[in-house]
Design a protein around this nucleic acid. Structure first.
Lengths: 352, 352
DNA sequence: GTGAAAGCGCTAACAC
DNA sequence: GTGTTAGCGCTTTCAC
């Protein structure tokens, strides 16, 4: 059998093009590469053949030969979460700007999936793997992530933590986070300054670093004015709208006493707001309500929500820029971006 | 110089492992592949070497050799839009289930970027390229997309249109859409049945297929009850919350007469609701308001929004399942999923 | 300027 | 069972 001219899929190789143009494969490669002197005549013959065959060079083969498109990967729990989506957007935009392809994986919070994916990315020779969003804070998870960071690092790649805290001292990972604690502190300080003394802390997965940061800010703000927050006022769940709705309803049914609610996420706040309305409570007349994230629709709630603004897209952009621009290896960069409180109409002075 | 044992990046090859284990490269390949009989002793020696070197086979090289992980790509305008995000989630989940890697690209609606990306995906030998969300409806864009479909098809891949209408007759593309027109028709019929006669059509990019579908439903519902909608009542813009807010405010300032508003998107509805409130208008007391998409926070608006439910995640899942499972080539599958109206409290009977 | 040849890192016959 | 030998589709010396 003579050499086939296209594979089963109907794809042509560089040799098919070469044959049709009456030149060698190397010449085709040079024409397509662009960076090499080729006579105008040859070039046009080659291009004609390329067009006729609708030839597109196999990117994987190029990569093996050392001339591939660089690629980077990012992982998140749930692309449907507004803050995740914003970070993802930042990552994607910056990656494109830097000429990288993006591989994604959404894990629904499954640590094993995440690890498995990261290993695949190592096989793909991704320039960096970006873990987007808060993490489980269990030692075992941290330890596994640290191992991942080392593995990536020793194969010339990089682990980037975007929106989560650093791992142990010597772990080679780039981290770009924002000040969860500072934002929560400022927000709660504002609430306390308005005279509130019993602030419900609503929602958030208990073992999640994001919640923990916000919780620390909640606590420190209280202590700063000399009071210890009542543990009964902490109602964890998860970061969804439904969680906020359910928890708020339970708090009301249970007769919990509070004059303000700090929902750990705007989504949680949205659900909580509905539960409050359903119970006939007015916001901020009866109860003040504040969220976190400052996502778009937050100003369309009724009343518009007081919340904490986080530069999510910038976080994503910085994650890729930092990971890709690092000069020396092993430098464990750590950026901490600021947040700020946005006061709207869902909070008011306590009038006990 | 003797053969190097690891490249600049510190990565090892299959030969490094082979050498260290004292076997041939093929044996290492067989051990790692798993599907081939290898003596227990050899296997363990190989595995030890793999561990010691922290070796991970280069996926690109595997791909060239014909044993790669299949990959698929999807493109969307803006991952930050809730309905896009849901479709993306469906795509990603199903792709993972079917063992595919996902490449993403978000184009901000730029047709050239989209084409360029699709071409890259052809080079990557992606099994399918999924275009997620509505399209520009210009002939030139359609024609370019059709060419893309042919190019993909002739190289054994596939173009999938997810949430947008089919192209011309003979174009080899898989299309999974939902009934934009039917949903809008049902919703407007409901509004008309409630006695409304002047319904504002708010938001949406004019040349976007999604808006056009919804617009057709709006028109047909009117005609079904024997009235011709007033063109002055159509206020296009885009699909964002801000667009809804701005357009609604303008409509009010301009003294436009209407008793109901059909926002072409829940996001648009959210902005519109705020503008209505700001103008001192009550919903649904003074004006009925309805949206489209049934995104999560829709029930946390005040009042909860009447809208049209769309099975977005399912759309994404079907897009990949259909694209990957097609038996014969060239079959231009076309699925049309249904939608349904969700009546909540933002709409009421007209009491002119 | 252009071609032949030697890789890139892997898998898959084909031998023994 | 295991090693040898050809590829996979491309790039890149090295000659001429």
């Amino acid at each position: 059998m003579t050499r086939k001219t296209a594979d089963v899929q109907g794809r042509h190789t560089i040799r098919d093009v070469a044959a049709r143009a009456g030149v060698s494969a190397s010449t085709v490669s040079r024409v397509l590469g662009g960076e090499y002197p080729v006579s105008a005549a040859t070039r046009s013959r080659v291009m004609r053949a390329v067009d006729a065959l609708d030839y597109v060079a196999d990117a994987r083969a190029k990569a093996v030969a050392g001339a591939g498109t660089p690629t980077l990967a990012f992982v998140l729990d749930d692309i449907t979460g507004p803050s995740f989506a914003q970070m993802a957007q930042g990552v994607e935009r910056e990656a494109r700007k830097m000429g990288h392809l993006c591989l994604v994986c959404s894990t629904d919070g499954d640590a094993d999936e995440q690890l498995a994916f990261t290993e695949m990315m190592r096989a793909q020779r991704a320039a960096a793997v970006i873990l987007v969003g808060g993490a489980h804070s269990t030692p075992s998870y941290e330890e596994r992530t640290a191992r991942t960071a080392h593995a990536l690092h020793s194969s010339g790649s990089r682990l980037v933590l975007c929106g989560r805290p650093p791992l142990a001292e010597k772990v080679p990972a780039t981290v770009i986070e924002y000040d969860n604690e500072g934002g929560a502190h400022a927000l709660c300080a504002y609430l306390l300054g308005q005279g509130h003394r019993r602030i419900l802390l609503l929602g958030g997965a208990p073992d999640n670093t994001t919640l923990q940061g916000r919780e620390r800010g909640y606590t420190s703000a209280h202590r700063a004015v000399g009071i210890e927050p009542d543990p009964a006022l902490r109602l964890p769940g998860d970061f969804t709208r439904d969680s906020g709705h359910r928890l708020m309803r339970q708090a009301i049914e249970r007769g919990l006493e509070f004059s303000a609610v700090f929902a750990t996420t705007d989504m949680v706040a949205a659900g909580a707001l509905t539960a409050l309305h359903e119970a006939g409570l007015s916001v901020p007349g009866d109860v003040s309500l504040a969220g976190y994230d400052d996502i778009a629709f937050t100003r369309d709630l009724h009343p518009p929500l007081t919340t904490v603004h986080v530069p999510y897209e910038e976080l994503g952009r910085l994650a890729v820029r930092t990971a890709l621009n690092r000069d020396a290896d092993g430098g464990a960069e750590h950026l901490l971006l600021g947040t700020h409180v946005v006061v709207r109409e869902s909070t008011a002075r306590f009038t006990g």
